[in-house]
Amino acid sequence: MRVVIFGRTGQVARELARAIPDAAFIGRDEADFTDPLACLAALKRHAPEAVINAAAYTAVDRAEEEEPLALQVNARTPGVLAAECAAGGVPFVQISTDYVFDGAGDTAWLPHSPTAPLSAYGRTKLAGEEAVRGAGGPHAILRTSWVFSAHGANFVKSMLRLGAERDALRIVADQVGGPTPADAIAQACLTLARNLRDGAPGGAYHFAGAPDVSWAGFAREIFAQAGMQTEVSDIPTSEYPTPAKRPSNSRLDCTSLMRDHGIARPDWRAGLARVLQELNVT
């Protein structure tokens, strides 16, 4: 199966390159997502049998001031690509986010739960979902959360850096979700692409690491596995204001993904151990 992957340097794209190195990876140099026609031309050149979109505008706070740009990258261009794929019956896998929900309550969100994003980033990712769904072709929308890996900027690497500089940290404890290893997301995307190609059902699915944990709990596990003595104190979100509002409840119900595609929630603690080993921390 000829797989085309949009994105080359992001966390999931880097893991996809490890998992399927013979895929065609289309980076910004060949197809900038601010230019949908360039992306469409690149797609046509590669004649794919499946497409995974691992490109996105992910600067959550900056999106509050750059929402039109984020909308172009996260919604309009993916919609153009999904429409081209739909015309040829080519499966299209789109990565989305827990930020499409408002974070109310403490019950895990189902794929069909009402969406109500709190931020510009969440709104643009939801618009991307709607564009891909509206294209009408075989597709899967994979909502995930709290992505981490040995690459790029993420919470694990931030904690390792700050923990090396400070004896104690104050970390938000009233936001709860599932940290998700980027390598597990890459494998899930590939499985979805193959299964869609074989006629399996598509639609929106959730995929997040288990067990659910707060940011503070996540930080404690990072320091424990890394052998660092940094003390973590719990604080509420109100003591760590950010330009973009984060959902308090990012729990995702992943049952349907297991039912339809046999993809189970990964243990993020095992994924963390792999990342720390790659970073030569353990």
Rank of each mutant, 00 (worst) to 15 (best):
V93M: 03
Q94F: 12
Q94D: 08
Q94V: 06
Q94A: 07
Q94K: 08
Q94N: 13
I95L: 13
I95N: 01
I95K: 00
S96L: 02
S96P: 03
S96I: 06
T97Y: 01
D98T: 12
D98K: 00
D98A: 12
Y99H: 14
V100W: 02
V100M: 07
V100H: 03
F101N: 02
F101Y: 14
F101I: 10
F101S: 03
F101R: 01
D102V: 07
G103Y: 02
G103W: 01
G103N: 05
A104H: 11
A104D: 15
A104N: 10
G105V: 12
G105H: 11
G105A: 12
G105P: 07
D106Q: 15
D106C: 11
D106Y: 12
D106F: 13
D106S: 15
T107N: 12
T107A: 15
T107G: 11
A108T: 12
A108Q: 11
W109Q: 13
L110F: 13
L110P: 04
L110Q: 15
P111Y: 10
P111F: 08
H112Y: 14
H112A: 15
H112R: 15
H112V: 15
H112M: 14
S113D: 14
S113A: 15
P114T: 12
T115S: 07
T115R: 11
A116K: 13
A116D: 14
A116S: 15
A116R: 14
A116V: 12
P117F: 05
P117Y: 04
L118T: 09
S119E: 12
S119H: 07
S119R: 04
S119P: 10
A120K: 04
A120M: 10
A120I: 10
Y121I: 06
G122N: 09
G122L: 09
G122I: 07
R123D: 09
R123C: 02
R123H: 06
T124V: 11
T124K: 02
T124Y: 02
K125I: 07
K125S: 05
K125Q: 10
K125V: 05
L126C: 05
L126T: 02
L126Q: 05
A127N: 08
A127L: 11
A127V: 07
G128F: 01
G128K: 00
G128D: 04
G128N: 04
E129Y: 02
E129H: 04
E129T: 04
E129F: 04
E130F: 05
A131G: 03
A131D: 00
A131Q: 05
V132C: 04
V132Q: 01
R133V: 14
R133T: 14
R133K: 14
R133E: 15
R133F: 14
G134D: 13
G134C: 09
G134Q: 09
A135L: 03
G136R: 03
G136E: 08
G136W: 03
G137H: 04
G137W: 01
G137A: 08
P138L: 06
H139I: 04
H139E: 11
A140P: 00
A140W: 00
I141A: 01
I141H: 01
I141N: 00
L142S: 05
L142H: 03
R143T: 08
R143P: 03
R143A: 06
R143H: 09
R143L: 09
T144Q: 06
T144A: 08
S145N: 14
W146A: 09
W146I: 09
W146R: 11
W146E: 07
V147S: 03
